[in-house]
Every structure is written in C-alpha cells, then in structure tokens.
Nucleic acid binder design. Structure first.
Lengths: 246, 246
DNA sequence: GGCGGTCGGATTGTCAGACAAGACCCCTAT
DNA sequence: ATAGGGGTCTTGTCTGACAATCCGACCGCC
C-alpha cells in the first residue's frame, strides 16, 4: 500500500474516547482485569486517564456493546467475557445485511452441523444426553404448536454443539443456527409432514449419540438438514434468495 | 417509564442512550438507511430524539464499535455494514478469553478449511486463481523471511475462502484463520522443513483448485493442516494448552 | 477566466459543572 | 440482632461552552 517515497503516512488523529476504550480493552485482554471483576468507577477512570467524564463514558460505550464490559444488576460496570450468544446474533446480522443466500447458509450448515454431530457422538456425556432426552420429550408433548417446536429444535441443536465439547465449532455454528431458526416455524406451519419428520430425526440423532456412533449421527443430521431444505422449497421459497432479517 | 398508579410495570429502565442506539440500529437494519448513507448530524439526532447531545453521542458510540456506524474521512458518521474482518477479530478474542485449546482450534479448522477448499475447487474463478498464483509467487520470493511467509499464508487461506463463494463459511472460518496465524511464524522459525512444506502444500492446493478437483484439494488442505499441527508439537507446544492472546 | 488565499458557518471532540434517582453503607433505636 | 434512617457514592442525563476542523463561498490576483 505504501508506494513512492514522497508520500506521507495517512494522518489519523485518534479521538480520546477511542484511546480510553483501547486502554481498557488492553487491560482486560491482557488479564490484568479478570472477567467479572469490576472496572473502576467513572470517577476513578477520569482521574487515571486525565480526561473528562463524558469522554470516559463514550469510551465505555464503545466496549459495552461488544460485551467486553457489561452492566451488573447494580448498573455498575465490570469486565465480562463476551458471550457467544451475543456474538452470534451480531454475526447473523452481518450475514443478513450482506444478503447471503439460503444456499450458502444451507451449505455451511451442512458442513458444520455434521461435523459437530460427529464430534458430539464421540464425546457426549450422560448429562448432555439427559438434557437432549428431556428436550425431545418436551418436543413430543408440544408437537402441535409450531412455535414451541421451533424453539425446542433450536435448543436441541445448541445442545449438540455443547455435547461436541468444541467451543470453536460451537461459535462458528451458532449463527447458522440462529438464521435457520426463523424459517423452521414457517416450514412447520406449511408442511404437514414437518413435525413428525423433525421428531423422528431428533430421535435417531439422539440414539446415535447415545450409542456413540458418529457415522449414524452424521447421516441423520444430514438427512435432517435435507428435510429442512426440502421443506423450505415446499413452502414456496427460493434457495437463491437472500435471507431476510430476523 | 413513570407509573404512579401501582407496582404493576416491572421497570425495565433502559438507559436513554441505549434506546437511541436501538432506534438507529433499527433504521439501518430495516434498510431505511442504506450502508454508506450519512446518518444525520448530532444536532439533528438531538432534535429527533429529544435528548441531550451527550446522550446521543453515547448511543452513537455503542454502534460505532460494532461497525454499524463508521466515521468517514470527514469525521462525519454514516451507516456501514459491519465487515467480517472486524467480527472475526471479535470472535477470536472471545475464544482466547474462553481459553479454548489448540486441539479444539485444530479440529474446527480441519472441518471448515477442508469444506471451504472443496467448495472453492468447484467455483474458483480465474481472477481468484490469479490472485492465489501471485500470492504463491510472492511467498517463494520471500521464503527466507518467516514473518512475511506467515502473512502471505494467512492471505492465501483468506483467498481460498473468497474462492469458495460462500460467505457463511468464510465468516465462520475467519477466526480460526486469525488464531492459527500467530503460531505459524513460531513454527516456521523453529522447524527447518516448515517453509518448503508450506510452499509445496500451497502449490498442490492451487493446482487442485485450477483443475477443479475437490478431492485433491481437500486432501492437500488436510495435509497442510496436519503439517501445522505437527510443526506445533515439534516446536514444543502442547495441543491441549489454551491458546494465548494475539 | 482560472487560480490560490481567506473568511464564516457548520460539525465534531472535549471540557466544566450540575442534579435526580438509585444503590450502598454505616449507625442507631427498638 | 434486626429493621429503619440518613449520608455518601455512582450512574444517567442535562446545560452550556469552546477549540479544532471541515466545507463551501467569496474575493483578489495573474
């Protein structure tokens, strides 16, 4: 990017509130302030940085949205590791704004969900299996309520992510989960076979997980996702359409 | 907010600056304000929302960090779709703070990078192939500078993401890219065979992409990642260690 | 007529100070 | 010992102000 010798570096004066935010961020990332530990009061920060309270507050706001700082119930600010859920919503929002198509979503979900399921089959603990079992039982109980089934479906897949014990995969997967979620309800309402097929798929996936059988697990997740795609098309949607806002 | 009659309303008491941020965010997400379009001036927002300028500014800061709003060269604020790079750094930061291990990173990268490469083999355009070719040529030229090779390696993999034409996968993958990156240099410095093997792998991957051969592409990416893992262990690191900060 | 310099308005970044509403804390009265 | 009361601290919001900068318009000069 830097070419001929005569050019000078692009001048960029960083605003003070940005510097404040950077400083606090470094403190947290370097571990000097542990997650959960309270950040100083605004007055203290004013003294430390030697700037006005308004400036400090603007700097804090920069970090607050990112989740690096969160408000306790007391309104007091403390450092907090940004949790995945928040990041995931942000990611899916970016994808929506970028007008990603359902085909891209489907393809990516296929890759990541099968991989997660495979890992989960190898490592699922009895605790997670119990949670999944409870989830499935609840799904069967509310089978005639598409909204409830949809919600439980999302939870089911999040639980599989948990079972995989791979947080990188979990984070990478979560946005697709969020984006698939709103269409599931639409499908369940429009496609008769939807709910029974969903429950059957969950049953088989859970069985495969219990038996620690990665291949069966992968196969059924694949089938489950294909069902989703077919239901999507049956509901009269086009796969190459951009996904809509949530 | 104000209810004198009884204790009915569970007071949510959202701060005003948060409300301002939410309002602006809705405007952008709903498409009423297109990316790149300037948001009003602070004075205008003050008038619209009926709050003080400080409050408006705090609201703006909330969005600024997320990339929903960005400063033009004029310092003027305009809407902007948050781009992946920024999100990716946020995601990798979260993973670091969560003390994710290298094994998790390796496993997730294996899944997503092979899938991306496969998709890229099917869809790579001549333009991207040319970019990759240029990248590889440059890598060979600076083969004795680990830092430069590392940087070009990261770019190589980002280009493969681009070639896959799947933005969901691209976003999901990017954090692993960022996290692998800093260790690559370490490996290249400590392992003699590192650079030639890296170049050879890139060569083979690029050939497979050119021939639109997904299987070969997948195989070589897999080998490339295994090299990374082995190099990591050869450099005396433990796969089950949490990844360090960037 | 084209060019560069200058000026004024608009906008952002920063500051000082103030006040209300809660949250917190310590102290006391029962 | 516990409930209540008051003082202090902290955050959220507002008012007002000023410097730096940017932008556009205007003006004089070649």
């Amino acid at each position: 990017m830097t070419d001929a010798a005569g050019k000078f570096a692009r001048i960029s004066s960083t605003p003070a509130y940005q510097l404040v935010a950077d400083a606090i961020e470094r403190q947290i990332l370097s571990g000097r302030i542990r997650p959960g530990q309270p950040i100083g009061t605004e007055a203290a920060l004013v003294k430390q940085f030697g700037v006005n309270r308004s400036t400090v507050r603007e700097g804090i706001r920069l970090l607050e949205q990112g989740g690096l700082i969160r408000r306790e119930s007391n309104r007091r600010l403390s450092a907090g590791s940004p949790h995945y859920e928040r990041l995931a919503t942000r990611m899916s929002r970016a994808l929506v704004l970028d007008q990603v198509t359902f085909r891209e979503l489907y393809e990516a979900a296929m890759v990541m969900h099968t991989a997660t399921a495979e890992a989960a089959a190898e490592r699922a603990t009895p605790e997670v299996l119990a949670e999944l079992e409870a989830n499935l039982a609840m799904t069967q109980r509310v089978a005639d309520d598409p909204a409830a089934v949809t919600e439980l479906d999302a939870e089911f897949h999040t639980l599989i992510g948990k079972a995989s014990q791979n947080r990188v995969l979990q984070l990478a997967r979560e946005p697709t989960n969020l984006l698939i979620y709103p269409t599931t309800e639409l499908i369940l309402r429009n496609v008769k076979q939807g709910t029974p097929r969903l429950i059957r798929a969950h049953r088989m996936i859970l069985d495969a997980l219990s038996k620690h059988d990665p291949d069966a697990c992968r196969a059924w997740v694949r089938r489950h996702l294909n069902d989703w795609r077919k239901g999507f098309e049956l509901a009269g949607k086009d796969l190459d359409q951009p996904i809509e806002q949530i």
